[in-house]
Computed example of a mutant assay.
Amino acid sequence: MMTNVSTAAWMHRAWADGSSWKEVARQARQNGIKTVTSSISFTAYADDVAALERVDDPAVPAGRAYPGAIAGGSRSDRVKALVHAAALAPDERDALAH
């Protein structure tokens, strides 16, 4: 496994918190990957993107459903790649809701 990767930023979904990624994050750390969980407020899309962008290190965000859209919405130079785990991945002009 590649160990010189940026920080893996695990983002929870609605009705959950960062602990939903606990086991995945533990296994990543055992393989030398720095991990953090990002707190998502679900108050506004821009606030949720800003929460991801507060990660100190270059990040590889990972999430499913709405967090995938948050990861895709970041324009930060520190976001180095995206991992969508069955996530929403709208095109730039697509709406998140109808």
Rank of each mutant, 00 (worst) to 15 (best):
D57K: 03
S39P: 10
V36K: 06
V79Q: 02
G68P: 07
K34T: 13
A8W: 00
A9D: 02
V55N: 05
A89T: 07
Y66L: 01
V55T: 11
E92G: 10
R13Y: 09
Q30H: 04
N31G: 03
K80W: 08
T35Q: 13
K22E: 15
W15R: 15
N4T: 13
A71E: 09
Y45L: 10
Y45D: 00
I70L: 05
Q27E: 12
S38L: 08
E23Y: 12
G68N: 05
R64I: 14
R29E: 13
V55M: 08
T37R: 12
N31Q: 11
V55D: 09
A25K: 00
S74A: 10
S39Q: 12
W15E: 14
G68K: 07
V55F: 11
S74R: 00
A87W: 01
P58L: 08
V24G: 07
A16N: 07
A46T: 03
S39V: 06
S38F: 06
N31P: 05
I40Y: 04
G32V: 07
K34G: 08
D48E: 13
Y66H: 08
I40A: 02
D17F: 01
T35R: 13
G73N: 00
T35A: 15
E53K: 06
S38V: 09
D57I: 03
A87L: 01
S41Q: 04
G72F: 00
R54G: 12
A44T: 08
V5K: 02
D17G: 07
V83Q: 04
D48C: 13
S6C: 13
S19D: 06
K80E: 11
